[in-house]
Design a protein around this nucleic acid. Sequence first.
DNA 1: ATTCTCTGTGTAAAGGATTACAGTAAACCA
DNA 2: TGGTTTACTGTAATCCTTTACACAGAGAAT
Lengths: 346, 346
Amino acid sequence: MNRSKVTIKDVALKAGVSVATVSRLVNGTGIVSEATAAIVQETIQELGYEPNLMARNLRKKETRVILIVCPNVTNPYYAHILAGITEASYQKGYSAVMYTTNSDPERELEGIQMLYKGRVDGAILMDGLRDYEVFYHAAARFPIVQCSEYVDTEIAPAVCIDNYQASRDMMAHLMGLGHTRIALISSDNDYISTKIRTQAYKDSLLQAGLSVNPGYIKLGSSDYSFQSGRTCALELLQMDDPPSAIFCISDTFALGSTIAAKELDIPTPQELSISGFDDVEYTTMHHPYITTIAQPCYKLGEVSAQILFDRLEKGPARTGLVHLDHQLVVRESTAKKWIDPSGEES
Amino acid sequence: MNRSKVTIKDVALKAGVSVATVSRLVNGTGIVSEATAAIVQETIQELGYEPNLMARNLRKKETRVILIVCPNVTNPYYAHILAGITEASYQKGYSAVMYTTNSDPERELEGIQMLYKGRVDGAILMDGLRDYEVFYHAAARFPIVQCSEYVDTEIAPAVCIDNYQASRDMMAHLMGLGHTRIALISSDNDYISTKIRTQAYKDSLLQAGLSVNPGYIKLGSSDYSFQSGRTCALELLQMDDPPSAIFCISDTFALGSTIAAKELDIPTPQELSISGFDDVEYTTMHHPYITTIAQPCYKLGEVSAQILFDRLEKGPARTGLVHLDHQLVVRESTAKKWIDPSGEES
DNA sequence: ATTCTCTGTGTAAAGGATTACAGTAAACCA
DNA sequence: TGGTTTACTGTAATCCTTTACACAGAGAAT
């Protein structure tokens, strides 16, 4: 077990060739005669030579490392995207370093610094940066792709589902079941997805000739906590004129809502339909299984990474939005609007 | 917006000093007069100079990057450990690159290669390596710490909870409630934690003068899937002489068991006590909230990282086991053994 | 015989930082 | 005044690769 690193020089010396030859062989660039190749190859094996990546990267001015900036990893939604990114990276021989921000602008800035310091070749941002200036400068200078959320698609591509269409699909499903009193549990964060889903909710109502009742719109916590979903639902269901369906912009909110309904002895979906968004694991852990919009999280990560690598290897690439397919998956938490036998609406 | 990197040379030239002076100022090593410091500082700002880490690392022979090898990130248990590691790294100015193996030995090997290639300074392994040889060689040569699972604590330190004591605690809780027919849902993986928990289960029974009934021991899937927990519980509960309590080595198995009990109309905890392990999010998403052993996941990651950094900065450090405190958290899924009014045991 | 293409290989210059060592000028001491 | 610190700064070697360029020798073409 040799403690100190073997360098290319050691190999060259021992094999009786120049470092250039060794390098050419190792990298498969340039021509090396079969005879020398054999000798050098053997020497490499014998000495256990591994090229020093720091030196190589310094010379080649690339790191083959990409940066992933995301709010946290404990949220399964992000975790799945992460899995997609790391897998794609692995395939392409890149490694991924993670930077979790907890949505702290200062942390976001620090993460971005890694680009300026030449520590990484590019970045995938899973959280619209709070500081637009910072984003703009970084995106103008380095390969960056936005995943899931975005702030500006002109300067850097963004990969996500079509949140507007997805929300419209879900609303169509709900209205198709006969619901007219549909509430919304949105979030008080300022993600673009939140805005779009909220807008789609309103547009759907309006275009169906229904009015938007501000009292039917509740804002859950910015991190989509399950408990805040429960609280919002509780408020909605205790209104004088409660909704017969709740459109949640997150599965966790939907889950919280099913709990709230259970607590108030309101059967789901018989008397209350609840829909979620994202399709994370726990939508099918307990009945009622939640009707939701499935996002291809893994794929989202994978495609983001691919676009980034493309850009890295082939130079300036496309910007703009890249939409991946979503899917409306109907399960147990939504059903035909219930009509009280007495004739009254429920 | 200058496209090309500003180097230390540019700064030196513009500020009218030597590169050495700039370097000294940037690194805070050596003495620099206030006057020059001011000029250089200003020049750095003006030019937007950021030291190139590749060059620095090459020279200093360190990368300030650590490797995290884990089976996956989508499991919240790992995700929380990961969060702890990345936070600790961030504090110390390290970055963390992730390598997910999906428990594939080949991938584990590839991950370890990063140490040999000098791409990272050290590693945290969250998955006992399948290939002991590989582990042994790597651990002998590089700073490695094992987190949560481990294969050999002589050659590299391991951070985890005291699985034996934790399991004994849970069994004591169950037996303290009057249960004598206690089943086990273990896993068919070969993690050390699995072995220890299983052993503790048996020892507890034996030391209480009870016998170990092989029929009461079921093996769930190696990845602790919720569905396999349900299946195991279903089998147990349909036995002629079903258990009155199930000790699960994972929360997901416990969750699956509550579902199984519900399907068979067996009230939990009135007629069946169920205990979990780990205390991940979904233990309190639905009633009955699950009685479990809380693991300090975040802290596990944090401490692992700290030990690694210590080793990196202060040379060879301790090996052996580092136990972090666990906690028995009693919630709703366990209760006093139910006695049928007719006098028969249930 | 001369020139030209190939092969195959070596030399040495980047690449961008850190740092040992040397040097200068001012300040201090005797 | 001469000698010794002290405070500061610069020169150049070093870390390990990659790669542009030069070069030598062999065979082909003229």
